[in-house]
C-alpha cells in the first residue's frame, strides 16, 4: 500500500488533532496518549466533521449500577450526535451497523505517513 506524508509528528502532537488530505480523502488525525490514529473525517451518520470529536475512553459495565472504563484515549464522540467511535477499528460502540474507515499510520524520522487504503474496508 502506498503511504503519503501528511505532517510532522511534532506538529500533530502540539495540535492534538489535524485535518489532512490523503490522496484526495479528508482524514482526521488524532494524537493521544494511546497513539496516533487516522480516521475518515466524515461521520457516516450525518456527515459531521470528526476532527472536532471529543476524545475519551469507553464506559463499560458488568451490570446495572456498575461502571468500568476501558480503551482510554481510543474512543471519539462525534461532535454532532455523540456517536462513540473506536479510533482503532472505526466501529460505532452503540451501532454495529455503522463504521468509519480508519487508515494505517507510519512514523518515520518524525514524519507522519498515512496509508491510502482504509484499514477497515467495510463502510456504512
Amino acid at each position: 500500500m502506498e503511504y503519503l506524508w501528511v505532517c510532522t509528528e511534532q506538529e500533530l502532537k502540539e495540535a492534538g488533532r489535524k485535518l489532512v488530505d490523503v490522496d484526495g480523502k479528508a482524514v482526521a488525525l488524532f494524537s493521544t496518549v494511546a497513539g496516533i490514529f487516522a480516521i475518515s473525517n466524515r461521520c457516516p451518520h450525518h456527515a459531521a466533521p470528526l476532527v472536532f470529536s471529543r476524545v475519551s475512553g469507553e464506559v463499560t459495565s458488568e451490570g446495572p449500577g456498575k461502571f468500568g472504563y476501558d480503551k482510554d484515549q481510543r474512543i471519539i464522540a462525534c461532535p454532532w450526535h455523540r456517536r462513540e467511535i473506536d479510533l482503532d477499528t472505526g466501529e460505532f460502540l452503540a451501532d454495529k451497523k455503522m463504521c468509519v474507515p480508519t487508515y494505517p499510520v507510519k512514523i518515520e524520522n518524525g514524519e507522519i505517513l498515512v496509508g491510502t487504503q482504509p484499514r477497515i474496508q467495510r463502510q456504512s
Binding site: 464506559v59 463499560t60 459495565s61 461502571f67 450526535h81 456517536r83 462513540e84 460505532f92 452503540a94
Partner: peptide, 17 residues
C-alpha cells in the same frame, strides 16, 4: 434508540438498543 446511541455511557449496562 437515538438517545442510547448518543448517551450510552450513562447506561452502559444496556447492551442493545
Amino acid at each position: 434508540d437515538a438517545a442510547w446511541k448518543a448517551f450510552r455511557k450513562e447506561v452502559p449496562w444496556a447492551r442493545k438498543p
